[in-house]
Design a protein around this nucleic acid. Structure first.
Lengths: 225, 225
DNA sequence: CTTTTTCTTAATATTTTCTTAATATTTATT
DNA sequence: AATAAATATTAAGAAAATATTAAGAAAAAG
């Protein structure tokens, strides 16, 4: 379990880190919001503890920004005890709220409560996907065709996994690019995707009889059940 | 959204009910834990607000009992402010904790926060429109006639979907063009639309018996229920 | 630092879709 | 019934989107 801690008060951040590490969590700690966003893009964060009063971007804005692309639980940690703030935080997409000074045990209990729920919801989302004779294992980053391994590059696997985890849905090239590359989509990005799609199709061994990836003209790509 | 409220203090239960109904939630209210369990078995509860101090079974036990079979969010409401209790509740399977006296806005905010999360995981229903023997699925970008797929171009699908999502309403050619093409309407645009409408009618297989798209002379086009 | 793998760019080819324009038909009005 | 206006039909060329290929750049591995 990877937990992100954002707090500009170094002592508090360190303290939280200590408690969490004690419980066996893997902690990413930072003192600024900007760095927090970078960590989120790189690491697979399962929960975030955000201070409201950070120097660069405030905690509310950070929370909002995160919610645009991520769904993991967010707990706001702060000295502010205004009820208005509390409500604002919850309405903006935060899942819980802890006021300083807090009891270590309460912090841990709230983190656990959020993670338990997050996990219980995520159980329904299989990490292993099956598409016709293909098996995709996200943890192993592995693609099997009839039990035989197909070597995919990271980008190829990401594209295939994204399409497979949205079975039947059409994923627009724009969305596909933004999800896989985590960059803003430009017209030129289109070409990049196309080449990867082609490589995928070749590796998967598409032919007249078996088609894995459908082109939905003018919209994007799709994988059927 | 069905919300269960369990509190032996009648005034408080009534108050909570009032707030929630005000927000448009459907509320099941009861003053005892035993009745609560019966309601849960019968109704499709989406969230529960439990008082800790109920006369028969205490709130903690109730929470535990519910958790054996159900996964919806549980918020504990109580006058007790012992930190130990707070932690116990969270560890037992509650998702959040509100202490009396509470602010109405905070109650609503916490309920919303929990439901948002619950829904975000449980939501995978497509927007599907049905017109006579046609089925339009926006996510799949697919049009079925009696379960058989009809291949539509992006423009054709957009036109059909626009008309179908405004059942019985007449869409002027101007509006249709502006909605689908996202450009300003010119007199020449009219011809373009007509050709697409024709293609649509052909692909949908209109004949003397079945008409999908009606021409409203001098105004535009329409799809009936 | 070198080698290997992976990714992106660019140029060209192919396919699909859209629009135009010319002609025909239908509808409403007088 | 004649006429004008609006819509329907048709086919073909233009435009847009995707596919393919190859080569060089970038990143990762050794």
């Amino acid at each position: 379990m990877n937990i992100l801690v954002v707090d500009d008060e170094i002592e508090i951040a360190d303290l939280i880190e200590l408690y969490l590490k004690n419980e066996g969590y893997n902690v990413y700690k930072t003192y600024s919001s900007e760095k927090a966003l970078k960590i989120i893009e790189k690491r697979n964060i399962d929960l975030a503890l955000l201070d409201i009063m950070t120097p660069d971007i405030d905690g509310f804005t950070l929370c909002q920004t995160i919610r645009r692309n991520h769904n993991f639980p967010i707990i706001m940690v702060t000295a502010k005890i205004t009820d208005a703030d509390k409500i604002k935080g919850l309405n903006i997409g935060a899942d819980d709220y802890i006021t300083k000074p807090f009891m270590p045990l309460e912090l841990i209990a709230r983190v656990k409560a959020q993670l338990r729920r997050y996990k219980s919801y995520n159980q329904s989302q299989n990490k292993i996907l099956v598409i016709k004779d293909l098996t995709l294992d996200k943890d192993k980053h592995e693609c099997l065709k009839n039990g035989k391994k197909i070597n995919l590059t990271p980008t190829e696997f990401s594209i295939l996994y994204l399409l497979a985890s949205n079975k039947d849905k059409v994923i627009t090239t724009k969305k596909l690019f933004e999800e896989v590359w985590k960059e803003t989509y430009l017209t030129s990005s289109n070409a990049t995707i196309m080449v990867h799609i082609r490589h995928l199709r070749e590796k998967l061994g598409e032919n007249d009889k078996i088609k894995y990836i459908n082109t939905i003209w003018g919209v994007g790509y799709q994988i059927e059940k």
